[in-house]
Design a protein around this nucleic acid. Structure first.
Lengths: 116, 116
DNA sequence: TAACTTTATTCGCATAACCGAATATATTGA
DNA sequence: TCAATATATTCGGTTATGCGAATAAAGTTA
């Protein structure tokens, strides 16, 4: 594998990590697991989705190396792998907030905007 | 709109930003635009994809508020909106590198692994 | 206006992602 | 082993995303 092929592979993996983040439930899961590790059932209740859906989302996060899974008796405890995932999410959220704030200011300034 | 509805909306937008990052070409575009702003044609050459594909990817990045577009005569110059997007991408790439390095070390340590 | 350059969009299609429902697997404890 | 609990997977169908090819639209210059 030559250098540019390697770079392409890494960028592909980079995109796969991002696509693991590209779902609101999975983002909530990561923030929730950042508080503390949890098993599937508790996480399902916390996020408000079904057990199979929770399990499938966790599988995706695990495949991409974002969470770890440890069996604890009958249940499986999932944990956030790396604090930097939260840092990255926070940065993106900050960009988002700036965008919303900016838009809100425009609305204030121009009262003829009735919806946005 | 109540508080939890708002939170859900924001998380949805958060996920939409992440999904804008969930493609290797778009990641390359953001890193490329971080060097300097470019028009569509130059970016297409740099990334190595067609002009229509480039335009479509840029449309997605623009819709999600990640790049800006400024017409400069016949061409349109695209620019990165926010440095923090690169910081976020770098953090995710660092997590990825750690994962790859860790895996490589395991391979070194256990010579009976022939593929990974 | 006509020819040219640059960018954006549409169309038809293929693939990937996601869901609910049902079911399978794993673990514990009686 | 059997019942109960916890987790994971499969199935079928829907929606979202991506592409190339063709075409439209916008801007420039003669």
């Amino acid at each position: 594998m030559d250098k540019s092929t390697l770079a392409r592979e890494v960028t592909q993996l980079h995109a796969e990590i991002c696509s693991a983040l590209a779902d609101p439930r999975r983002i909530l899961m990561l923030y929730t697991l950042h508080e503390c590790s949890r098993n599937v059932g508790d996480l399902a209740v916390e996020i408000g989705i079904s057990q199979p859906a929770t399990s499938r989302h966790l599988k995706i996060l695990k495949q991409r190396g974002l969470v770890s899974a440890t069996r604890k008796g009958a249940s499986v405890e999932y944990a956030l792998i790396d604090e930097r995932l939260i840092q990255a999410l926070d940065l993106l959220r900050a960009v988002l907030y700036d965008r919303l704030t900016q838009r809100a200011n425009l609305v204030e300034e121009a009262a003829n905007y009735t919806e946005w």
